[in-house]
Amino acid sequence: MDLEVRHLRVVCAIAESGSLTRAAASLRMTQPGVSAQLRRIERMLGGALFERRRAGIAPTALGELVLTRSRAILPSIDGLLADTARAAGSQSAPNRIRLGSVGAPLLGHLILAVRELLPEAEVTTRCQYSPLPLLDDLAADRLEAAILGDNPGRELQPRDGVILQPLVMEPVFALLPATHPLAADEEVSLTRLLKEEWAVPRPEGDRTREYWSSIFALTGEHPHTPYEAEGRQLIEVVRAGLAVSLCQATFIEVPGVVVRPLAGNPLWYRHVLAWHPDGPLAARGDEILRRVRDGYLATSAASPVYARWRQHHPHLARRPT
């Protein structure tokens, strides 16, 4: 078997996600399928590309070499594919709309807006934890629009051919076990929270962890972060009473966890809608933006804690984006 471009994508996906399970999700493959693919690639290249560590998997020296070459090659290949598809007149066909999203409560509203405005379109979606792969997909014409997110002072960098339109800025809230003493408070002091053990998402290119750390440093406290998890796994660690964490203001409480505002609103998160200026959604961009913003307001009202915060902070609830 010869080495192919798809093999390089598998290796990069494993390195970027830090685990075979997450890589499988991003590649839309099964975990056993990714494992088998990796074994075949390693046999072709003559050695192990990754090694298992407590925090996940990490590249070996051979893996670093392969990753360096792959990351140099793949953007050129993606650009070639996008250019030839555009030249052939098949790129961004009006009846096919590909959407992406980070972990935000706005994807459903974006899908509904596109379906209502373009009822004949076939809508597909792809989700990522970090906004950067989605931004890459937008720039390479692999997506027509996406919901992204960033933080103050660490905003997403503009890309050629991609419009970045802020949707709303919202506060970041505390995520606590329901049995935690701080759960009885209406709002939580960040300084007090930093004395607990934390569950945090793994470092990503979106600079979220970097932003959190910069705000934490202002308090003089440095949290102990023994648990690294994302999504459902992070919630389960908090639910078990093992740690505290942070979440979006629109997070809906589930049994075993509670959401509380942070006193003084020290951390913020910005939702961003991105699309192509010459794509099939360009003429509808303003209308889609309005509909997604309206959907966000409905989502905010459905979160009792956030709805109450917005009532108590009307000037901040209208904070410009």
Rank of each mutant, 00 (worst) to 15 (best):
Q91N: 13
G46Y: 12
S101V: 01
R9G: 08
R69T: 13
E204W: 08
L20G: 01
G220M: 02
S214Y: 04
P32T: 12
H271K: 11
V168M: 10
T60M: 11
S17A: 14
E155K: 06
A82W: 06
A282H: 03
A25G: 02
D136W: 09
S213C: 09
G63V: 11
G33A: 13
A199V: 11
L273Y: 07
L132P: 06
A13D: 03
V114A: 08
G285Y: 05
L134V: 14
A263N: 11
D278C: 04
T250Q: 04
D83P: 01
H276M: 11
S130N: 14
L297K: 05
M169V: 15
R126D: 09
R86M: 09
V257M: 02
L135W: 03
E51L: 15
G18P: 03
L49Y: 08
N95W: 15
L110Y: 03
A61V: 15
E253R: 08
G103K: 10
L234N: 02
G295K: 03
G161M: 07
Q165E: 15
L190Y: 00
C127I: 12
V244A: 01
I73N: 13
S70D: 10
A146F: 04
I288N: 04
E186M: 06
L74F: 15
F216V: 03
L289M: 11
Y129T: 09
A139V: 07
V123R: 05
I77Y: 14
L62P: 03
A36I: 08
L110W: 02
E16N: 12
A36Y: 08
A307K: 06
L242N: 07
T208P: 00
R291H: 06
R319E: 11
E51S: 14
P166C: 07
D78P: 04
A36Q: 10
R290M: 03
G295E: 01
G46E: 13
R290G: 00
G18M: 05
A48T: 12
R159Q: 14
H224E: 14
D141A: 13
R52D: 14
L38M: 10
V172L: 10
A58Q: 10
A93K: 08
R96Q: 15
G241K: 06
G108K: 01
V34L: 11
